[in-house]
Design a protein around this nucleic acid. Structure first.
Lengths: 361, 361
DNA sequence: CTGTTAGCGCCTTCAC
DNA sequence: GTGAAGGCGCTAACAG
C-alpha cells in the first residue's frame, strides 16, 4: 500500500550534499546558487528523476492549478461536435500554463444548495461547483453551453469565484464576468451574402423558437444581411432543433406565399431536415434551392450531405477562455474580458448554383 | 491574493469547543463520539459550510483521488461519437467513488522520456504520463483508443502504475493489465444473423486493412455468422476508414463475380460510403441491398441515412473501466480483470426488407 | 471518548 | 550563497 514515495527536495539535497533550500533555489532562483553547487544539484535531480510534488505545492500555495469543467450529459444522439474539440483546446491551453482540467458532473441543474437526501431536512450539502470550491480542489471554472441569464454565472460572480465562459451571458443589464463567444450574426450574414452571390434574391430563415440568445443573434444576422443587400427578408419559420422539425419547416416555407429560393438555417440539424425535404420533392440542393447550416457538424462534410455551414473556431475559443481564466488566477491585468470571434462559412455543394459558378472557361 | 481560506478542522473545533481530532472523529468514526458532542460539531460543520480540504488530504494520504485521461487530438472531422460519451461515463463513475478525472494531452506519441528541447543533449524531461506520475498529480490512468500492442500498456505495467483500458491489448502473449472491451465479433455476427432473417443469403463484408485487432475481430464475427448459418462467406473488401473508400469498396463488391445482396461494414463511415454508392446506382438500401454499420454514430439515425448499426454500450464500458481502476487503487481484490461486453444491433431502414417484414396482417 | 503529537512535501521569511 | 525553522490542512498512532 505505502508506495516508497519518490524523491523529495530533501532527498535530492542529501544526494547532492546540500540542504533542501538550496535545491529549491536551484529550481526557482538559479542565479542565487554557485555554478558548481547548481550543477551538482541539477545532476542529482536528473539522476533521481525528481519532479516537485504537485499536491504539496498546492497545499502550500493554496492553488490546485486545476480548472473545473462540468460535463453536461448529452441527451439523445449528440450531433454537436463542439464539446470534444472545445475540451481538447481547453486542456491544451491550460497545460501550456501549468494547469490541468478537472472534470465533474452535476445531477441537479443549478449550483447552490440542494435539499438533504435524508429526512427532507434542509441540508448544506453543496453541489458540484460549490463542493469543488469548498474542498479547494480547483482554482476556477470553465463554463460552456451557457444560456440566457445562466444561473451559474451569477452564482459564481456573487461569490467572487474565478471563471470564464464560452458563450456570452445574454443578460440585458448585468455583466457577470468574462466570456468568449462566436459572432453568430456575422456568420449568418456571410451565409446570406454567399447565397446572394449565388444568384438568390429570396432568402428564407429556419430558426429556433424565440427566447434563445444564440438563436436571436443569428436571426439578426440574417435580417442585417438582407437589408444590406437591399433584399426584403424572406419568410421566417421557427421550431426546435431536430431534423424532423427542419423538414417540416422547409415544407412550410416552400409551400408559403412567397417561397424562398434559399434557406439559411440556424443549425446543421435543421438544415439536414431541409435537405431531406428537398430530396423528397425532387429538388436538388444547391442547383434548385440553396441551403446553409451552422456549426459545421461532422456530418455536414459527408458525401450525400455536402452541407455548406458556418464553422466556429472552437480551438481559438478554448485558448481564449483559458487565457481569460488563468489571467484572473495569476492576478494578471485583464486586457479584455469579452472576446467575440468571427466564424467562417465553409461552402459545399448545398449552396453552390452550378450555372452561377464560373468553372468552365 | 491571499484568500481568507475557508474553515478548517481546527476552526470547526474552536467553534464547537472541541479539539480538531474530535472533529475528525465526527467525520470518520462517528460512533466514537458522544451524541451531544457530535451534534454540536455537526452543527458547526453545517454553519461554517465546512468541507475537508482535498489537497491537504491528498498530501497526507498520498493519493490525489484523480484519474488521468489523455485526450487524443482528433485529426480531421471526427465522426466517432465515442470519446465524449466515454468521458462522461468515466467522470460520473469516478465521482460515485470520490474520484475525479484529470485531463491532459501529449504532443509526442509514446510515453517515456523524450529528447531535450535544448542543445539536443539527453534530458530526463518526461512526457505527460510520466510527468503526472512523478508529480503525484494522479493515482492512475484511464486509457482508450488502445491499439495492437499499445506501448502505453507495457510502459505502465512495467512501472507498476495502476491503469485500466477501454480496448483489449490484442497482444499475443503478454497480458499487461485490466481492460474492458466490446465483443466486436458478436456484434457483427448479430448483424449477419439479422440480414439472414431479412432474406439475404449472400452477405459481403467491408472491412479495414489487415493488422488492426479491432478490425480482425469484427471480420471473424462475419465469418463465424456465415458459417453458423450455413452460408458461404460472401466477398470481402478492405480499405481505410473513409466514406469515399466505402463507396469504392461497395462498387467493387457489387460489380464482382458473386455480388452480395447485403453489406456488413466494419464501421459507420464505411457504411455511409456504401449507401452513397447504392444511391448512385438507383438501388434502395434495405429494399434492394441490406447495409449495416458499426458504432451507431450520431449520423446513423439521421433522416436520409437510417443506417442500421451495432451500438456499443459505452456508458457501461466507462463504469467498468473505472471500477477496474479504482479497485486497484483501493487494494480491493480484483474480481476480474478482463470484461467483454456485448454490443447490440440497432435496426433501421438500411437493413429492413419491406416484403419480408410482416407488417401487414 | 478526547486530546497530544508528529509528519506528508513544499514555500517562504529569516539568520549565518 | 547556504542553512535553519515554521506552517499550509489533514491523517493517524498514541496517550490520558
Amino acid at each position: 500500500m505505502s508506495e516508497p514515495s519518490g524523491p523529495t527536495m530533501a532527498s535530492i539535497g542529501r544526494v547532492a550534499g546540500v540542504s533542501r533550500q538550496t535545491v529549491w533555489n536551484v529550481l526557482h532562483a538559479p542565479d542565487k546558487v554557485r555554478p558548481e553547487t547548481r550543477a551538482r544539484v541539477e545532476r542529482a535531480i536528473r539522476d533521481e528523476r525528481y519532479r516537485p510534488n504537485r499536491v504539496a505545492r498546492s497545499l502550500r500555495t493554496r492553488s490546485a492549478r486545476l480548472l473545473g469543467y462540468c460535463m453536461e450529459p448529452r441527451g439523445g444522439p449528440d450531433l454537436n461536435p463542439v464539446q470534444d474539440r472545445f475540451l481538447h483546446a481547453v486542456t491544451e491551453a491550460a497545460e501550456a500554463r501549468g494547469y490541468h482540467v478537472l472534470l465533474f458532473t452535476t445531477q441537479r441543474g443549478d449550483p447552490g444548495r440542494r435539499a438533504s437526501s435524508r429526512g427532507g431536512r434542509e441540508d448544506d450539502r453543496l453541489d458540484g461547483y460549490a463542493e469543488l470550491l469548498a474542498e479547494a480542489a480547483v482554482d476556477g471554472f470553465v463554463l460552456s453551453d451557457t444560456t440566457v441569464d445562466d444561473p451559474r454565472q451569477a452564482w459564481l460572480h456573487e461569490r467572487g469565484v474565478p471563471y470564464a465562459a464560452f458563450g456570452r451571458s445574454w443578460s440585458d443589464g448585468e455583466d457577470p464576468g468574462p466570456w468568449v463567444d462566436i459572432d453568430g450574426a456575422a456568420g449568418v450574414e456571410s451565409a446570406v451574402t454567399h447565397l446572394y452571390e449565388q444568384g438568390h434574391r429570396r432568402i428564407g430563415f429556419v430558426g429556433w423558437p424565440t427566447g434563445s440568445g444564440v438563436g436571436e443573434d443569428r436571426v439578426s444576422g440574417w435580417r442585417r444581411g438582407c437589408e444590406r443587400l437591399g433584399l426584403a427578408p424572406g419568410p421566417l419559420a421557427r421550431g426546435d432543433n431536430t431534423s424532423d422539425t427542419g423538414q417540416a419547416l422547409a415544407a412550410e416555407l416552400l409551400d408559403g406565399p412567397d417561397a424562398p429560393t434559399a434557406l439559411v438555417c440556424v443549425s446543421d440539424v435543421l438544415a439536414l431536415g431541409c435537405l431531406a425535404e428537398l430530396r423528397r420533392r425532387g429538388l436538388r440542393p444547391g442547383a434548385d434551392i440553396g441551403v446553409t447550416g451552422f456549426d459545421d457538424a461532422p456530418f455536414a462534410a459527408l458525401p450525400g450531405v455536402e452541407l455548406s455551414s458556418v464553422e466556429q473556431p472552437i480551438e481559438r475559443v478554448g485558448a481564449d477562455v483559458v487565457r481569460l481564466l488563468i489571467d484572473q488566477l495569476t492576478g494578471e491585468p485583464p486586457a479584455e474580458s469579452h472576446i467575440v470571434l468571427a466564424p467562417s462559412l465553409r461552402v459545399r455543394a448545398s449552396s453552390i448554383h452550378p450555372t452561377t459558378d464560373p468553372v468552365t472557361p
